[in-house]
């Protein structure tokens, strides 16, 4: 993803919007800080706003899922490796129709933690050939230095599903998913997580930012969304409420365990939860552990059938 790719994508978006694509989920550069945000453009004249750089951090799949049914025609989307993984998952779960979307796949060199760049003004930050150039003084910073931690563990920087593909991908991660926490004794592990989740303010940014969290009613919302004018007070009171709004570390851990559990075999590894977290909680550790166990115990990894729906993978002796 450098300025070259950005130009190609910009042209392609304009061309496609002239053809059969009705709207495009793309990134645009923010004016006041070196950061990009997702928006939906509807006409080729808007295509000049399109930006694409290692600052295109957010997962476009979430916005795609939100807007895809607002249009009758095709909706285009710019998707990095992890975005495409999420889109693939959403397609296999029947949330998006493959025919309704056009995916511009982007082989991704990794994305940047914008917080490391906030000292610079947005027009001064340029990405070229895997380097980051700060205009005043032409200071060069290797991308690897400011890259988001999650990207270092990325196993599929290239899109897994696309209609066309551009850009140059980073080397996929090929190490182990073992976490150093696993080696600690149980009590220390518990202490570690309790300390970590003491910080959680339960803003639900992790849930909201996740492309795979699309339930209209979440387990942690304290009232059943499906109440009707006819439901009696007894009915409402009897509806199971597992977790209120108490923010004790153990309850926060409860929430995060359940949230992670709902991503068993579905996680797109995009790291949106961790990036979204205002309290810098290492949420990906939980996700990675779960995906690792699914791979080790059930031998399931990135298949077309959702993990829970696959019934022939029951491990013996456990």
């Amino acid at each position: 993803m450098d300025t070259e790719t950005e130009k190609i994508v910009r042209n392609r978006v304009a061309e496609l919007l002239n053809e059969d694509v009705e709207a495009f989920v793309v990134f645009v550069r923010k004016e006041t800080e070196p950061r990009e945000r997702i928006t939906v453009i509807k006409g080729p004249e808007e295509a000049e706003k399109v930006a694409l750089s290692p600052l295109s951090v957010n997962n476009t799949a979430r916005v795609l899922l939100e807007v895809v049914n607002n249009f009758d025609g095709k909706v285009g989307v710019v998707a990095k490796g992890c975005d495409s993984k999420a889109i693939k998952g959403l397609i296999s779960e029947g949330k998006i129709e493959r025919e309704k979307i056009h995916i511009i796949g982007i082989s991704c060199p990794g994305i940047v933690d914008y917080r490391k760049l906030i000292a610079f003004s947005p027009e001064d930050v340029i990405f070229e050939d895997g380097k980051l150039i700060i205009k005043p003084g032409d200071k060069e910073i290797p991308l690897e230095e400011v890259i988001h931690d999650n990207c270092r563990y990325c196993r599929s920087p290239s899109p897994v599903i696309y209609d066309e593909i551009y850009g140059k991908a980073r080397e996929p991660f090929d190490g182990t998913d073992d976490d150093e926490i696993e080696k600690l004794p149980a009590d220390e592990r518990w202490k570690y997580w309790i300390d970590v989740f003491e910080k959680c303010i339960r803003c639900y940014a992790c849930r909201s930012a996740c492309p795979m969290c699309y339930c209209t009613e979440c387990l942690v919302d304290p009232v059943n969304l499906a109440i009707s004018p006819m439901s009696t007070a007894e009915e409402k009171a009897a509806y199971p409420r597992f977790l209120g709004k108490t923010v004790t570390p153990a309850d926060n851990l409860f929430y995060h365990l359940i949230r992670v559990f709902h991503h068993a075999g579905r996680c797109a590894d995009c790291g949106e939860c961790e990036r979204a977290c205002p309290m810098d909680i290492p949420l990906r550790k939980l996700e990675r552990k779960l995906q690792k166990e699914i791979k080790e115990i059930f031998g399931y990894e990135d298949e077309d059938i959702p993990f829970l729906a696959k019934l022939d993978i029951i491990p013996e002796g456990r």
Partner: peptide, 20 residues
Amino acid sequence: IGCVGCGTCTFLCPTCFCFD
């Protein structure tokens, strides 16, 4: 469009005072 609909802005806001 980009907003994820979380409560980060309101929870971190020093003047937001809504409670349940």
